[in-house]
Design a binder for these strands. Structure first.
Lengths: 367, 367
DNA sequence: ACAGTTTAGCAACGCTGTTGCGTTATAGAC
DNA sequence: GTCTATAACGCAACAGCGTTGCTAAACTGT
């Protein structure tokens, strides 16, 4: 990958994204508060706000009187100015959601998938679900920023190619991003399901969520990583293969070839009906992840986890409280995604929004 | 932390750093190759090169004839244009090195530390070792970019405060960066030892080293993380506490309170004289780390590891080859740091260089 | 000697955020 | 009712970034 030089366009995109980011989490804001939060001069903020108003992303709405002096103009984000469609490709069905610029889910639609579905069968199902979705909740097509796909890896995010989707035949080196863009006629984003999921949390929570992970338990265990204010995918889009970290090195053999993987132990406990043990094991894995990445937020998700939601939250929460070294400054929040079972699909949509209205990427190589 | 807006100064710093980064790894280069590598126009590269020549960081040296046409001017980095001093604070001694802009170690100097040394005793030892170092290898003081400190955590990198250095009394909430700057009269950088170490590898290897970890085995096991082209420290400068990840959840109790930590198992094996087992355990931990972070480079370091260097390299290498899912695109390099026992001190020096001549930081929040 | 090719750099330009300062709208005092 | 202090807004000029257009310079090959 090249390390591109930066020009004025990068600057504009970055500062615009900074303001959009503030706008997402503040119900209303004025010029002064943006200037204070960004360090930009009020005059520079005026120019940014003018650009965003021209694009329709924000709108002025009333004034704020703070005693003496001319009242400040108040701005609000226009949630319905942009939309995105997110797709969660699971093993037996595909789930689509429509979100607005705030990341709110407006509507959803599902389609079953044939066993061992092909790329073509997937795209047929997506096209049909999209039509149903937009019938159910019509929006101006010009305002749809694009369509995001979240699915199981391994895949190559940079080039939009599915390498070898786990437990799916017909899915070796499939250039899905291009196929989908051609078939559906929109800009397409392809990423791992868990990375899409953590993007949903980051987009909705804003700048507080600089470092976080999304733990997904749903036919396997994976983690989506958001590190230093951006999705982290690793050198080969393979980061977060959290289920295949060993927590009992002399334990039972896993399908991946290693012994005592978190996933094999967890699934065995679930199979025996011992969900509390499964949740405790997940807690050990989560604390391992915290020791390694030191993130501030752990978000739990996935159909298999949500089925025993209370058990998992309690086990992971107490693991974090008791097994992370005690220090008042070492704070970690543990929660279940507010998006529930839609988090992956919604996150796929928000990856599209993040690409268009989030900070531009640089490939910032060292020195 | 604020998320600062970006101005023209950021742009300049970023593009300058891009070129310095190329210059570090290319023995000689011309305008065209920089333009191709960065995507900047040749004219923009001319301006950057002129700035860097004016600063003395690079110099023109001869021409390159490529057949017909006017020969291209070739440039070289001036290794001796800048220097930095790096300090590795260990439990019983302090090690200083002097490096140049390329990250080459020019000279070293050590001092013993009293048992349970205080901040003041440390700074006295550093001042004395620095005097010795500069007597041994005199350099223009104006060319010394600063002094970096690498030591055991937990600490607060952003504010330069040692929180609770592990197994050291007198080290609670010590504002060491300010104390050292006042005492030594130079710009000071404070970071965890392992983060300094991985910075050394990144600074010397350049843009190939976008994602890598440095594994250090030296009175404990830790990892320094370099993710996405920058040091990754986590939300509380506590990332990389790799020794306290559990690899045998029903294993023996560790000092940290958890059971079956990598470190407690590893140290027990070493204590029994079973270094091969210790190395195998480290290999399991390294593969766990790879599953989580998917980095392209694993660098081994630390006095306890170097003592049995061949055993560790072989065990970790074969673990990576046999336990990471086989795929031709999933390439990981495993090596021992070429800097040997100086990697932490040298890395602390390179953190200073990276701050001054590496890419400026943004705190790029999402959206 | 000349043509063709490649590199270097001056000058004008568009765009970024910044600075200086005049304009506008309010609350409070007279 | 009028005036003054205050706070926010925004026009205009500006410095500095990379870009574009073009000319000059330095080489090889004919």
């Amino acid at each position: 990958m090249d390390t591109p030089g930066a020009g004025l366009g990068y600057l504009r995109g970055y500062n615009d994204a900074l303001v959009v980011g503030l706008a997402r989490t503040m119900p209303e804001f004025d010029r002064a508060s943006v200037a204070a939060a960004t360090g930009l001069t009020p005059q520079a903020v005026s120019k940014v706000l003018a650009r965003l108003v021209a694009e329709g992303l924000i709108e002025p709405g009333g004034v704020r009187r703070r005693g003496v002096g001319k009242p400040a103009t108040i701005y609000r984000i226009v949630a319905a100015s942009r939309f995105a469609i997110g797709v969660h490709v699971a093993r037996t069905r595909v789930r689509l959601v429509l979100t607005d610029l705030l990341g709110s889910v407006l509507a959803g639609s599902s389609q079953p998938l044939p066993a061992d579905f092909t790329p073509d069968e997937l795209l047929t199902a997506v096209a049909s679900a999209r039509a149903q979705l937009l019938r159910r909740h019509p929006v101006d097509p010009a305002r749809i920023a694009g369509l995001g796909l979240g699915m199981v890896g391994p895949l190559d995010h940079a080039n939009g190619i599915v390498r070898d989707a786990h437990r799916l035949r017909h899915w070796h080196d499939v250039p899905l991003r291009e196929l989908a863009a051609a078939r559906l006629g929109v800009a397409v984003h392809l990423d791992k399901d868990v990375t899409a999921g953590v993007t949903a949390e980051a987009w909705r929570r804003g700048r507080d969520f600089r470092d976080g992970v999304l733990i997904m338990v749903e036919s396997g265990i994976g983690a989506g990583l958001w590190l230093g204010g951006a999705a982290y995918r690793g050198a080969h889009t393979n980061a977060g293969e959290f289920g295949h970290t060993v927590v009992q090195f002399d334990g039972p053999r896993c399908v991946c070839g290693r012994s005592g993987c978190l996933e094999v132990l967890h699934d065995a406990a679930v199979a025996r009906g011992d969900v509390p043990l499964a949740a405790r094991l997940l807690g050990i894995g989560v604390v391992n992840l915290l020791q390694t990445t030191d993130v501030g937020h752990v978000v739990l998700a996935g159909a298999d986890l949500l089925r025993h939601r209370a058990v998992y939250v309690s086990a992971v929460g107490s693991a974090v409280r008791s097994q992370v070294p005690r220090a008042d400054w070492l704070t970690v929040s543990v929660s279940v995604s507010a998006l529930g079972g839609d988090v992956i699909a919604a996150g796929a949509a928000m990856q599209v929004l993040n690409a268009a209205y989030g900070p531009p990427s640089l490939g910032s190589g060292p020195g």
